[in-house]
C-alpha cells in the first residue's frame, strides 16, 4: 500500500553513477523550462527521463522523482499511472505497439496483431519469457494515412506495415539488444492486501516449466 501523503523527504537514487549524471543534466534542462515557483510542472518530462534510463518506472524511481521535484510520491504515481507511455511494470526490451484505431483497423491492423501473436508466441498485453519482446495494442498514432502503423519502444514509427514487413521487423529486433530494463522487484513487495475471503490474485505465470507457458502478463499503464 502507498501512504496517502509521503513526506517529501530524501529518497535514494535508483540510478548508476553514469545514469545519474545524465539524469541530472537533463533534469536541469527540464526544470529550466518553468519559472522557479512552477518547477513541479516538469513532472511529465522528468518521468520520461527516468523511464528512458531504467526502461520502466520503478517504485524507487517514482519516489526519487518526487523527492527531486518536491511532489508527494502518491501524486507522482497518480500521474505515472494516468499516461499510457509510462510503464509501471517492466516490458520487453523491444515493446511493439500495433495501432488499432479506426484507420489502421480498416487497413488490416487486426491481421498485424494476429501475426505478431503467432510470431512471438504471446498475446497482446504480454511479454515473451526471454524478455525480448512485448506486444500491445495502442491508440491512434497520427499515422492514419500510412496504415497500418506500428510503434516500437514508444518512439519509433513503422508505417505501411504488411505481414511480410512485420516479419522482417521482428527478425531485425530479435538480433538487437533493445532497451535495458531495470529488474522487477520481488513479486511479494507489490502484492496488495485485498482483505479476507478473497482468493489471492494470480501474479505468477501459471506454469513455469521449460515447455510450459511462454509468457507473463505485463500490461502496463491503464
Amino acid at each position: 500500500m502507498i501512504p496517502l501523503q509521503t513526506p517529501g523527504g530524501p529518497a535514494p537514487s535508483p540510478f548508476s553513477p553514469e545514469q545519474q549524471s545524465r539524469f541530472d543534466a537533463d533534469f536541469g534542462r527540464a526544470v529550466a523550462k518553468y519559472a522557479a515557483d512552477h518547477r513541479r510542472a516538469a513532472l511529465l518530462p522528468v518521468l520520461h527521463l527516468a523511464q528512458d534510463l531504467l526502461g520502466w518506472l520503478t517504485e524507487p524511481a517514482m519516489a526519487y522523482v518526487g523527492f527531486r521535484l518536491d511532489i508527494p510520491k502518491v501524486r507522482v504515481r497518480e500521474v505515472a499511472s494516468f499516461y499510457t507511455m509510462y510503464r509501471l511494470k517492466p516490458v520487453g526490451r523491444h515493446a511493439i505497439g500495433v495501432c488499432n484505431s479506426v484507420s489502421c483497423w480498416a487497413m488490416g491492423s487486426e491481421q498485424i496483431i494476429k501475426r505478431c501473436e503467432e510470431k512471438l508466441g504471446i498475446r497482446s498485453g504480454e511479454t515473451t519469457r526471454d524478455g525480448q519482446f512485448s506486444l500491445e495494442e495502442v491508440a491512434c498514432l497520427a499515422a492514419c494515412g500510412y496504415a497500418p502503423a506500428v510503434l516500437v519502444n514508444n518512439y519509433r514509427y513503422v508505417e505501411n506495415v504488411t505481414p511480410q514487413s512485420l516479419d522482417s521487423l521482428i527478425e531485425e529486433l530479435r538480433a538487437k539488444p533493445g532497451n535495458s530494463m531495470a529488474p522487477a522487484p520481488e513479486p511479494k513487495k507489490l502484492e496488495i492486501n485485498r482483505g479476507q475471503g478473497e482468493a489471492p490474485r494470480q501474479t505468477e505465470p501459471q506454469t513455469t516449466g521449460p515447455s510450459g507457458a511462454t509468457s507473463v502478463q505485463t500490461s502496463g499503464g491503464k
Binding site: K33, A41, A42, L43, L44, P45, L47, V79, Y83
Partner: peptide, 27 residues
C-alpha cells in the same frame, strides 16, 4: 519558447486537460 512532450493520453488534446498536463498533473 519550449517544447513539452506529453505521455500518451488522448484527453490531453482537450485544451484544459492539456493545461493540467502542462502543469504536471494528470489530464
Amino acid at each position: 519558447m519550449h517544447v513539452v512532450a506529453g505521455a500518451g493520453a488522448y484527453i490531453c488534446g482537450e485544451e484544459t486537460a492539456l493545461l493540467e498536463s502542462l502543469e504536471g498533473r494528470k489530464g
